[in-house]
Simulated assay, not measured.
Amino acid sequence: MISAGEFRNGVTMEYEGSPFVILEFQHVKPGKGAAFVRTKIRNLKTGAVLEKTFRPNEKMPRAHIERQDMQYLYSDGDLFHFMNTETFDQIAVNASDVGDALKFVKENDTVKILSYEGQVFGIEPDLFVELEITETEPGFAGNTAQGATKPAILETGAQVQVPLFINQNEVIKIDTRTGEYLGRAKD
């Protein structure tokens, strides 16, 4: 059990029968009345974000999320196939459970499969990946005084914004949480 007074960003809990993760929290002590905890929480199954307030002594059970390393094999229509690299067991996950999580993941890359009570609800790719640019317009030095960007298509099909000096067939580093260009990959 966890009390609302112990809330921290990233803590998982069960609320109204579903697993939630705390995105933001704030302990509020008004001049009059009792203190409370204002939170922004995300439902791990549906992705819905809620704003809730709790009394600091309110208790709820922790949600135990299982994270398992698996290798992404291939997609087959609305199913994405993964393999446990230790036991070689394979599972298929619906596209609705994957969401946009695989837009920076190539076949044979390792990801974390997230499950709650045996039900897969999400995928966590590595935080930073190196991918090749397959399509972008040529850039010209001196086009602008400040860091202008242009669209680039990556080998996974995802589109990101890159600086003008980046060319096709270059390998770049991407932050998978934000989709931001971080720099050229080091050889």
Rank of each mutant, 00 (worst) to 15 (best):
M1H: 03
I2G: 01
S3H: 06
A4K: 06
A4S: 14
A4Q: 06
F7Y: 12
R8Y: 09
R8N: 13
R8D: 09
G10V: 05
G10T: 08
V11D: 13
T12H: 05
G17W: 05
G17A: 02
S18I: 01
V21T: 15
L23Q: 11
H27G: 07
H27I: 13
P30R: 10
V37M: 09
R38I: 10
T39M: 08
T39N: 07
T39F: 12
N43D: 15
N43L: 07
L44M: 10
G47W: 09
V49S: 13
K52S: 01
T53C: 08
F54W: 08
R55W: 10
P56Y: 15
P56A: 12
E58K: 13
K59P: 00
R62Y: 02
A63I: 11
H64G: 00
H64N: 07
H64L: 12
Q68D: 03
D69F: 10
M70F: 03
Y72L: 13
L73H: 06
S75Q: 14
D76G: 04
G77A: 01
D78T: 11
L79W: 13
F80I: 01
F82W: 05
N84P: 00
D89P: 00
D89Y: 04
I91T: 12
V98I: 15
V98D: 07
K103I: 03
K103F: 02
K103V: 11
F104V: 09
F104Q: 10
K106A: 12
E107F: 14
V111L: 09
S115G: 08
Y116F: 15
E117R: 14
E117L: 11
G118S: 12
Q119C: 06
Q119G: 01
G122C: 05
I123K: 01
I123H: 00
E124F: 01
P125K: 02
D126G: 02
D126T: 11
L127V: 08
I133S: 00
I133Q: 08
I133E: 04
E135Q: 12
E135M: 10
T136Y: 05
E137S: 15
G139A: 09
A141H: 02
G147T: 14
A148V: 07
K150M: 13
P151M: 05
L154P: 03
T156E: 01
A158K: 03
Q159G: 01
V162I: 15
P163M: 04
L164F: 06
L164P: 00
N167S: 15
N167D: 15
N169D: 12
N169L: 11
I172W: 10
I174Y: 07
I174F: 13
T176K: 09
T176Y: 10
R177K: 07
T178S: 14
E180V: 12
L182K: 14
L182V: 14
G183V: 00
G183P: 02
A185Y: 04
A185G: 08
D187Q: 13
